[in-house]
Structures are given as C-alpha cells and as structure tokens.
Amino acid sequence: MKPILPSISSTFAISVYHFITYDIEHHKDEVKPTTWFVVHGNLGNIKGVIVVDRYLQQKLNEQNFYYYWLVYFLLLCLIAAGIVYYYNTRHDLQKMLVVGCKKNEFIPYYQPIMSLDDKLQGVEVLVRWKLSDGSLLLPAYFIEVAEQMEVINEITITLVKKVQADFRRYSSNYNRKVFCAFNLTAQQIENKSFINLLILTLKKEENFVPSFEITERQHFNNLALAKANIRRLQEQGYQVKLDDAGTGYGGFSYFMDFNLDGVKIDKMFIDVIGVDDVKVEVLNSIIMMAKRLGIDIVAEGVETQQQVDFLRKHNIDYIQGYYYSKPVPFKDLNFDN
C-alpha cells in the first residue's frame, strides 16, 4: 500500500492509497471491480471509495494518463463534496445554537465528585442540549462550534442561573454545601466583561460553593489578562483548577503562568492503572507534582475498583467517574453519601 497523492494537512485531511488487488490476466471473465483508490477524510465525516472497473484498470496499467486524470477528477469531486457538506453543516449548527439559546434549551447535568471515603463533596456541571422533541445532545456534538462563537458565553451564564435555581428548588434534599465546578474556555477567561458578568451572577450565592475548571481545548492569546482575571475569580473565594491536565494546549506550563488551586487528571491517565506499568509512572509524576505544589487533585473518568484502590493508596483528594455515577439531573443526585 503506497500513497500516490500527498496528504493535505489542513481543515480537510485526506490520504489516498493505491491498491492492486486483482491480476487482470487471471480474471478476464470476472466482472469484479478492483478497488484502486481509497479516500479517507476527517471533514464532515466524509469517507469515500473510488472503484475502478477492469477496463479502466487496464488503461491505468498501461500508464494511460488520460484515465489517471479522470480518477484525479473524481477524487477532486469527492473532496469538493466533503467541503461543501462540512461548511453547510457547520453553518446550520451555528444557526441552531443561536436559536437554542433563545429557546433556553441548554440545561445542566451534574456528575458527583467524591472524597476518598465515598462522601459527596462536589459536582461538575456538564451542559446538555435538550431539543424540542425531548431528546438530549451531548457536548461532543456542538461544544467545539459553540466555543468558537460568542454563544458559549450565553450558554455558560444560562447554566449558572439554572444551577442556582436547582439548588434553591431542591434545598431540602441536602444539608451541607458542596462545590459546583463550571468549565470555562481560554477565551472566556480572557474576556473581562464576561468575567464581570459571571462574578455578578454568582454574587451572594449561598447554596453552593462555585469553582471553575479551565479547559485546554483553546490556547491563551493574552496571558497577562488571563492571569488577572483568574486572580479576580480567586479573590471572590472561587477555586480555579486545570481540567484535562496535559492533554491540550497549555499542559503543565499553566502552573508556571497561573496560581491554580487544583488539577484534574484526565481519564487517559487513569485508564493505564493496572494495564501499563510503564505509563502509570506518568500518572505518578502528575500526582507527585501536584502534591509538591500543595494543590487539590481530582481524578476523573474512574470506572473500576482497581482504579479507586490505586487513587486511595496515593491519597488524592477527589474521585469522579462512572464508578460512582454518570452525569444526572439535579433531582437524581444523592446527597446522603
């Protein structure tokens, strides 16, 4: 298998491979086509296969450049179709996000964050898009586009207000305060007006302790402004932690730039527990670094008893994952733990 066209490294990544799967002389009477070109793309989930029949295959074997150009043309048509599909779909999603905000369709789900003695200490707020037919869309379907639009700010403030309403409505369900972690993007952290609105919205909140997690899907453009806004949040008494540490743009350089209060260990590092003794040393290094910095450690994506035992042995602070609970509506949270 050998590439006959260069890969395009851009918004649309495509690779084309050349396969010789049949010998024409040995299959003269067969009508089977031969797959010569396979196209893989990550644009709009486009995947295509160009099948070349025996006649065209023979012409290609004869180095007939006219037929080579025909195949190239078909490939270009496939790429063009992928680009059109991608941008049309993206544009439609952008319009749907704006309409969804106007219709108040974004709602919070909560995933418990537990202490080592299995007591509920906090929750992470995770967005869900509740469509008019009652179905729920997970963030994977829309969050990347939302984060590239101003609409992410409106979604975040909407979630904060709905979380406040949930805690007021179900105040009889719990007898102690827990912390509530909201995700913020790099652009939101750099947006002074947004941070002002966030602080104003949470002012005098008494039913839960707000905290924030910085996601690494986007990089900071203005470290000085980001640092100042993080400090403002901390001055209000809110903790700021690094989410998915080591998997995005910032990595552990964030600990050199910001005075963070904690780190959340990504599931990819938790998955190696009991599976790969070499890779688990990376996890040990993350835990050791966080302890030396004196910051909180949250392990997310925990699914097995073996992982829980390992984390308890290493005396981390909090555990989050399906081992305890999937994300649920507020009314399904168990505050008795």
Rank of each mutant, 00 (worst) to 15 (best):
Leu60Ser: 03
Gln58Trp: 07
Tyr110Pro: 02
Leu56Asp: 11
Asp53Glu: 08
Val49Gly: 07
Ser115Cys: 08
Val51Thr: 12
Gln111Glu: 04
Tyr86Trp: 09
Asp118Arg: 09
Gln121Asn: 09
Leu126Asp: 00
Val127Lys: 06
Asp117Leu: 02
Ala80Phe: 15
Lys47Asn: 15
Tyr66Arg: 11
Leu116Ile: 06
Leu78Ala: 14
Cys101Pro: 03
Glu62Asp: 13
Glu124Tyr: 03
Val52Gly: 04
Pro108Ala: 00
Tyr72Gly: 10
Leu97Tyr: 07
Tyr85Asp: 15
Pro112Asn: 03
Gln94Pro: 01
Trp129Leu: 11
Arg54Ile: 06
Asp92Cys: 10
Leu93Asn: 02
Leu97Gln: 10
Val127Thr: 12
Val98Pro: 05
Val125Asp: 06
Cys77Phe: 13
Asp92Lys: 15
Tyr72Trp: 14
Met96Ala: 11
Leu70Asp: 08
Tyr86Lys: 07
Ile107Met: 05
Ile46His: 14
Asn88Ser: 13
Tyr85His: 15
Phe73Cys: 12
Ile46Ala: 14
Asn61Gly: 15
Glu105Gly: 00
Val71Pro: 07
Ile50Ala: 06
Val123Phe: 00
His91Gly: 03
Ile113Gly: 04
Pro112Gln: 05
Tyr85Ile: 10
Lys47Tyr: 08
Leu70His: 07
Val125Met: 05
Ala80Pro: 04
Phe65Val: 05
Asn61Lys: 11
Tyr72Ile: 15
Lys59Met: 10
Leu93Phe: 01
